[in-house]
Design a protein around this nucleic acid. Structure first.
Length: 279
DNA sequence: ATGACGTTATTGTAACGA
């Protein structure tokens, strides 16, 4: 299985580019974030003509997540348990959930397409929301892997955290000043790893960014952030044989500000695993 | 210069992003 994640920053604005990438790169499962539309507005036809099933979860013009897959998509969920909600001016336990998580099972792999809240500012209610959201995700992960230690679980998407200083090349992103690099966010990311997940890309692609702001020549200057990840349980991480960050997708006409991240998995029963058996 | 850049709501202006 070739698994990818991409914050597309509007699927309607970039459907041709997105499908072209999936086909050209032979992607089996593409998790998308920031589709910025409701399901009835999603350009399903372009994906279906290219051989993909699609599940989309969007409530309005904000956020929105989707999964395109060559194999059938089952066990679809629109939130993980206890996922907090948010509504500006109506913070609290009763705030409605946003379209930031889509879970599904594909060829035995449990995949979550995740768009972690931005945080907006260190003193903003959205920052508290971000930390609560990540804690609920950690708790879900820990419970799930305690019950099913051998589950191939993939948490993929835009985590809106640069886990180490090496993941921050943007001079305007500064610890103590902006989100994405605070000790609290980094601790929340580490807690996810401690719950049984591995960053499956870093060992194979040790450097590089996945996002560059549209403003101030950030991409030509290569002043980006590494904030998009493919995290996997041990069963999933052990199956990773290759990983890529597709920096070139930040080039050309109307690019997203994020680029795709891809892993190749060799799972038991892979139909395309044609290597000879050697004893 | 409280903006730069881009998308979506909408059609003048605001929210949101990281």
């Amino acid at each position: 299985m070739r698994l990818a994640t991409w914050n597309v920053n509007s699927i309607r604005a970039r459907v041709v580019r997105t499908v072209d990438f999936a086909v050209r790169e032979n992607i089996d499962v593409l998790a998308m974030q920031e589709i910025k539309c409701k399901p009835e507005q999603f350009p399903y036809e372009a994906f279906e003509e290219a051989g993909y099933h699609v599940e989309a979860h969007g409530l309005n013009q904000w956020n929105g997540v989707a999964i395109a897959s060559r194999s059938p998509i089952t066990e679809v969920e629109h939130a993980f348990p206890d996922m907090p909600g948010f509504l500006k001016g109506h913070e609290g336990p009763d705030a409605p959930q946003e379209a930031r998580a889509l879970g599904a099972t594909i060829d035995g792999v449990k995949v979550w397409s995740l768009y972690v809240p931005n945080g907006r500012g260190l003193d903003d209610p959205h920052f508290t929301y971000k930390l609560h959201w990540l804690e609920a995700l950690r708790a879900y992960t820990q419970r799930t892997l305690a019950a099913q230690p051998d589950l191939p679980l993939a948490l993929v998407g835009d985590f809106n955290i640069a886990p180490t200083d090496a993941d921050n090349g943007d001079p305007t992103v500064v610890e103590g000043v902006t989100t994405h690099v605070s000790p609290e966010e980094r601790a929340a990311f580490q807690a996810l790893l401690d719950a049984g997940l591995t960053d499956t890309v870093r060992p194979l692609v040790p450097t590089g960014y996945t996002y560059w702001d549209y403003k101030q020549l950030r991409f030509p200057r290569n002043e980006g952030l590494r904030i998009d990840f493919i995290l996997g349980s041990s069963a999933l991480a052990d199956a990773v044989v290759a990983a890529e960050i597709h920096r070139n997708e930040r080039k050309g006409e109307i690019p997203s500000d994020h680029v795709p991240v891809v892993v190749d998995l060799e799972l038991d029963g892979d139909a395309d695993d044609d290597r000879p058996m050697i004893f």
